[in-house]
Design a protein around this nucleic acid. Sequence first.
DNA 1: CGGAATCCCCCATGATACTG
DNA 2: CAGTATCATGGGGGATTCCG
Lengths: 107, 107
Amino acid sequence: MNFDKQIQERPECTVERALAVIDGKWTTLILRDLLAGTRRFGELRTSLTGISPKTLTDRLRDLERQGVVTRVVFPEIPPRVEYTLTDKGRALGNVVYALAEWGAEWT
Amino acid sequence: MNFDKQIQERPECTVERALAVIDGKWTTLILRDLLAGTRRFGELRTSLTGISPKTLTDRLRDLERQGVVTRVVFPEIPPRVEYTLTDKGRALGNVVYALAEWGAEWT
DNA sequence: CGGAATCCCCCATGATACTG
DNA sequence: CAGTATCATGGGGGATTCCG
């Protein structure tokens, strides 16, 4: 149970560690969008059809905390907030591209 | 809600389609193991620390139904069942390798 | 516009016991 | 050994409302 997971905070397997970062139903799709360039909150919300604002915020905060995206707030009215991938986030491009290629060939 | 998802059974995005296949908390780790070669049920159960037999069965059945793994039963006593990746499953190696490389460099 | 605050719920997963 | 059967659960995600 949870005890087992907590005593191995840093599993040896690099795949497991990577999965812990891009976990979540929407996370990889957020990365897909941001790999195309900086996006505003509303742009992501529109592109990710069906996502709730709560979930989008939750996922973006997680990614931010893990150093995958940066969040820049522009003190304007109406407010503007932009999300951009960090180097760490851009490096995940290989994963997303691999998924896209496989999906194109096999699904 | 679900209605929206059902009217687009085959989303255009290849990333989404790929994610639909490797969905689940354990699925990618199962693929990681099978990429190293054929494995028996018990071997997978041991390697995937913490997984319940029910969940392992569920995930393997899903992967089988989607043509990612093949299940071979040997009519012996005690029974032996081996799981092997199909071509479609082996093609997912690129995804797993991309995850492993990213995990090694950034986590 | 970009959230925060609440409340709620489903379903993948877990725990456990049993069997051919 | 490789599952099935059953029941319990919890937390990620959804729906809605409100705010600066």
